[in-house]
Every structure is written in C-alpha cells, then in structure tokens.
Amino acid sequence: MNGTVTAVSSDGVYSFTKPNRDSVTLLAGLGVEGDIHSGVTVKHRSRVAQDPTQPNLRQVHLIHQELFAELRDAGFEVSPGDLGENITTSGIGLLSLPVGTLLHLGDEAVVEVTGLRNPCLQIDNFQDGLLKQVVGRADDGTVVRKAGIMGVVTTGGVVRPGDLVKAELPAEPHRPLDRV
C-alpha cells in the first residue's frame, strides 16, 4: 500500500488552519518540529484541560487529499492545511489502516498510526456545515469519521511534497482505528 505526500503544513501557534511549507521535520517522540501540537504530552487544549499528563497520541495529523474532492462535490472548498493537518497524502487509504501501522514518509521518517481524528465544532466555524460532511453515521448507526488520522513519530526525518508514503501493516489480528 503506497501513496504520495501532496502537502506538508505546520504552525507554531494555535490556529485552525496551518500554512503549507516546503518541508517539515518530524522529531521522534515529539511530532512536527515547531508545530504547536508537538510534544510528549497532549497539546490539544481540550485534552490539556482534562489531564495535561496524558501521552500525546496526536503528534502528527494526516489527511487524504481525496477527502477534499469529496467535500468539493458537496459544495465546500477545502485545501491542504485548511483542516489543521500536518501531512496531506494521496493514493493511500488512510482511514482503512489498522492501529499500529507504520507509515514510512520520504527517506527516513516513520509515523505510527494511533487512531482517527475526532473533529470538533471548530470545523463549522471554518465553514458552516462542514462537520456533518466529515462526521456521519453508517447504515448500521456507527459513527464514521473522515477527518484524517493521527500518529506518533517513531523515527524522525524531513518530509516534503512528492515524497513516497509506504504503509507497513502490524502483525494480525488488526485493530480498527478509533478516535484518539
């Protein structure tokens, strides 16, 4: 299972969107160098308020570019970095990967997949009605989250648009992604 990095984004301050960069540097055990969500413990404000000592399972946020086409068809204009992701990919089914998948990004970096992004109401402040497009329900009533996946950096390195993404699946049995 391979794909491509189409964009990389980071921001050193809390903001919903993140500007695109020529490259980002992933730091093992921390996340994206210079990004507000980088660190060993949680950095998302709601999680810090609950317990600031929790491990940061959301060091890197990845979204599949194919989501943007789906959103465009529904009348929304969303581009890489707009939803706060650090790495935008194409050609790889991020949402179908199991927990523990290792994503090899470029020549060196490796991110271990920890779970699904659980988007909050801020997404509707960005574009009204967008939350319903990225969180819904399947026919059986289960919640479907499409706003990307989260991971932790196991091996650091530089990631650039155009880099290859290779998924290394964990040993079976596979655990499906759940929100983190």
Score class of each variant (00 low, 15 high):
residue 1 M to R: 15
residue 1 M to S: 08
residue 1 M to N: 09
residue 3 G to S: 05
residue 3 G to C: 10
residue 7 A to S: 10
residue 10 S to Q: 13
residue 10 S to G: 10
residue 10 S to H: 11
residue 14 Y to M: 06
residue 14 Y to D: 08
residue 16 F to H: 15
residue 17 T to Y: 10
residue 18 K to E: 08
residue 18 K to N: 07
residue 21 R to W: 10
residue 22 D to W: 03
residue 22 D to H: 15
residue 23 S to T: 04
residue 23 S to G: 04
residue 24 V to I: 15
residue 24 V to C: 09
residue 24 V to E: 03
residue 25 T to N: 13
residue 25 T to A: 14
residue 26 L to T: 00
residue 32 V to W: 08
residue 33 E to G: 11
residue 36 I to A: 11
residue 37 H to R: 06
residue 38 S to A: 15
residue 40 V to S: 07
residue 43 K to L: 09
residue 45 R to Q: 12
residue 47 R to G: 05
residue 48 V to T: 08
residue 49 A to P: 02
residue 51 D to Q: 08
residue 52 P to Q: 09
residue 52 P to K: 14
residue 59 Q to C: 00
residue 61 H to R: 07
residue 62 L to R: 02
residue 65 Q to H: 14
residue 66 E to C: 11
residue 67 L to W: 02
residue 68 F to L: 15
residue 69 A to W: 03
residue 69 A to N: 06
residue 70 E to K: 08
residue 70 E to C: 01
residue 72 R to F: 11
residue 72 R to I: 03
residue 73 D to G: 07
residue 74 A to H: 14
residue 75 G to T: 11
residue 77 E to S: 09
residue 78 V to A: 08
residue 78 V to F: 05
residue 80 P to A: 11
residue 80 P to C: 06
residue 81 G to M: 10
residue 85 E to H: 01
residue 85 E to I: 01
residue 85 E to Y: 01
residue 88 T to W: 12
residue 89 T to P: 14
residue 89 T to L: 06
residue 89 T to M: 07
residue 92 I to Q: 01
residue 92 I to P: 03
residue 97 L to W: 00
residue 97 L to K: 02
residue 97 L to S: 00
residue 104 H to M: 06
residue 106 G to Y: 04
residue 107 D to S: 14
residue 107 D to P: 04
residue 110 V to Q: 09
residue 111 V to C: 12
residue 115 G to I: 05
residue 115 G to M: 08
residue 119 P to M: 14
residue 119 P to V: 09
residue 121 L to R: 14
residue 121 L to G: 07
residue 122 Q to W: 12
residue 124 D to M: 13
residue 126 F to M: 13
residue 127 Q to M: 06
residue 128 D to K: 12
residue 131 L to A: 08
residue 131 L to D: 01
residue 132 K to D: 08
residue 134 V to Q: 14
residue 135 V to E: 06
residue 136 G to S: 12
residue 136 G to E: 07
residue 138 A to P: 10
residue 138 A to C: 02
residue 139 D to W: 06
residue 140 D to I: 05
residue 141 G to P: 10
residue 143 V to D: 05
residue 144 V to N: 05
residue 146 K to D: 07
residue 147 A to G: 06
residue 149 I to G: 00
residue 150 M to Y: 12
residue 150 M to P: 02
residue 151 G to V: 00
residue 152 V to A: 04
residue 155 T to G: 06
residue 157 G to F: 07
residue 160 R to G: 11
residue 160 R to I: 02
residue 161 P to K: 02
residue 162 G to R: 08
residue 163 D to V: 12
residue 164 L to E: 12
residue 171 A to W: 00
residue 173 P to K: 08
residue 174 H to T: 05
residue 174 H to A: 05
residue 174 H to K: 07
residue 176 P to D: 01
residue 178 D to R: 14
residue 178 D to Q: 14
residue 180 V to G: 06
